[in-house]
């Protein structure tokens, strides 16, 4: 293996200067001829994704444009963006936006606090903890919050005996606000995981260099630190938003489906609570969800392309 091979394999080169080694023409031609044979080994994987992901997704999108008899129509979408379904889209987006925003702020502060401690135990504890909690979710999470700040939760009762009634002050766990709080349990760790590498990539040398050029601390942050951290923060926000937007289990277990969110409405339609003339409405909701996630993904990809230039 040559050095060139090695460098080309790792496409965004660690050097980060963007210079790629030009390939000799002969190798490209040989590569083309070998191309199909090389792809062959990955066909099972591609076929599997095709059958069990692309087929269901495409069928939802295709059905969304059809009426009950298979004729082309836009009426499903018309229904999906009116009345209770419009409200559920708005509620879902609001919930995901607020939950992601809170997690971005808290997670960023935590990531900064962890990065600034030289205590190794704290560091590895937070990293391991984040890896574990970021994968938590679903039904058990909902019930552990019921036990904590539900109607008869331990913390609710403690506060009551201290003379403060959460539920008479407008708080309810079984609401959009409650969900936004519960979601923090997996969103904050995710934010910490995403932000630790870029924060720890900030170099002491950059501070020194800026200082030797006469910059103050705040000038360093204004012109170097924040511009470097802003793209990963925005990218993280989008990841968290999508995560919250698609979450179904926690919301369903916590509210028994009474809360108007898109995944919940769609779940209710699938479970058979379908009114006459709404046969393919669920598909339109599903297509709408895919659209929102795809838009978020495109923004994410654009930001990532800018970030990966320096973060390696």
């Amino acid at each position: 293996m040559t050095l060139n091979d090695e460098l080309l394999d790792r496409s965004p080169s660690p050097a980060g200067d963007g210079t790629s080694v030009p390939e000799p023409a002969g190798r490209i031609l040989r590569g083309r001829r070998r191309g199909w044979k090389n792809v062959a080994g990955t066909l099972p994987f591609i076929a599997y994704l095709g059958v069990f992901l692309a087929v269901p997704a495409v069928s939802v999108i295709a059905t969304a444009f059809q009426d009950g008899k298979g004729n082309l129509t836009l009426s499903n979408f018309n229904e999906a963006i009116h009345g209770v379904y419009l409200k559920s889209f708005i509620a879902s987006i609001q919930l995901s936006f607020v939950a992601a925003l809170v997690a971005v702020v808290v997670g960023l502060l935590a990531a900064l606090a962890v990065s600034s401690t030289s205590n190794k135990i704290v560091r590895s504890l937070v990293t391991a903890g984040s890896g574990v909690f970021a994968n938590t979710g679903g039904v058990p999470l909902a019930f552990s919050f019921v036990a904590t700040v539900g109607n008869f939760g331990i913390v609710t009762k403690l506060l009551q005996s201290a003379g403060f009634d959460l539920y008479s002050h407008g708080f309810s766990l079984y609401s959009v606000t409650g969900l936004a709080i519960v979601y923090q349990y997996f969103l904050i760790p995710l934010m910490i995981l995403i932000m630790l590498p870029p924060i720890q990539a900030l170099r002491k040398e950059w501070v020194d260099a800026s200082e030797s050029l006469g910059a103050s601390r705040s000038q360093f942050w204004r012109w170097i630190g924040i511009p470097l951290l802003a793209p990963p923060i925005f990218a993280a926000f989008i990841v968290l938003f999508t995560d919250a937007f698609a979450a179904y289990a926690t919301a369903q277990a916590l509210t028994s489906g009474t809360i108007p969110l898109v995944p919940i409405q769609l779940g209710a339609l699938i479970s058979g609570n379908v009114l006459a003339g709404q046969t393919n409405l669920g598909d339109a909701l599903g297509a709408g969800m895919i659209l929102i996630v795809v838009i978020a993904g495109l923004i994410y990809a654009t930001i990532q392309r800018r970030t990966s230039k320096w973060l390696r």
Binding site: P56, T242, Y248, P263, G286, I290, V294, G297
Partner: peptide, 16 residues
């Protein structure tokens, strides 16, 4: 798979 929420995958599985 992150692009297609699991609720939507389920709907697609049922229809297809």
């Amino acid at each position: 798979p992150l692009v297609v929420p699991s609720v939507v995958v389920t709907l697609g599985v049922i229809t297809s």
